[in-house]
């Protein structure tokens, strides 16, 4: 076992993890953060996206041990019913949510873009969301929601 220290959703944790344990396993099984989804386990689908030290990563491709010393945001750390993040609000209002399995990863990719760039172009939005697959093929509304969230945030 390896001892790691990390901050998840603004809370510090010390965890003992297996050498082969992935970050997604530590988040889901040790911290009970089940909003992080596993779609493919090989970094193709982006359902397991989390923000690690200001960058989006596929948590299925990061070993838990590699996250030692890092600051992580999962979907549970973004907004709530009383005060949703502008991205979450836009996703709901535009109808960018279908089966919902890609949604946490989509929201995190969009949030991370807007954290860095309040006035993204359509191309920048496209690039930021390109690591997240939606098999319901709801891309049009997802991209529109990110655009609306950017406009709201820029106000």
């Amino acid at each position: 076992m390896i001892e790691i220290n990390l901050v998840v959703n603004e809370k510090p944790y010390t965890l003992n993890v297996e050498p082969s344990e992935r970050l997604i396993d530590a988040l889901r099984n040790r911290l009970g953060l089940l909003g992080t989804k596993e779609g493919c386990g090989e970094g193709e689908c982006g359902a397991c996206t989390v923000i690690m030290d200001g960058k989006t990563v596929n948590s299925c491709l990061v070993l838990a041990a590699q996250a030692n010393g890092s600051v992580i945001t999962t979907i549970e750390g973004v907004g709530n019913r009383r005060s949703p993040h502008p991205v979450q609000k836009a996703f709901v209002e535009v109808g960018a949510v279908q089966c919902g399995f890609c949604t946490p990863g989509m929201v995190l990719s969009a949030k991370n873009l807007l954290d860095r760039n309040l006035k993204p172009s359509e191309t920048e939005i496209g690039i930021a969301m390109s690591g997240n697959l939606c098999r319901c093929t709801g891309y049009d509304k997802i991209l529109r929601a990110v655009k609306i969230a950017a406009e709201e945030g820029a106000k």
Partner: peptide, 22 residues
């Protein structure tokens, strides 16, 4: 008129339970 689907909020907050989550 537009209707907000009732499962949308749970999904954007990552609260919705899929079978892998139970």
């Amino acid at each position: 008129s537009r209707v907000v689907r009732e499962d949308a909020w749970g999904k954007v907050f990552g609260q919705t339970k899929f079978p892998a989550d139970v």
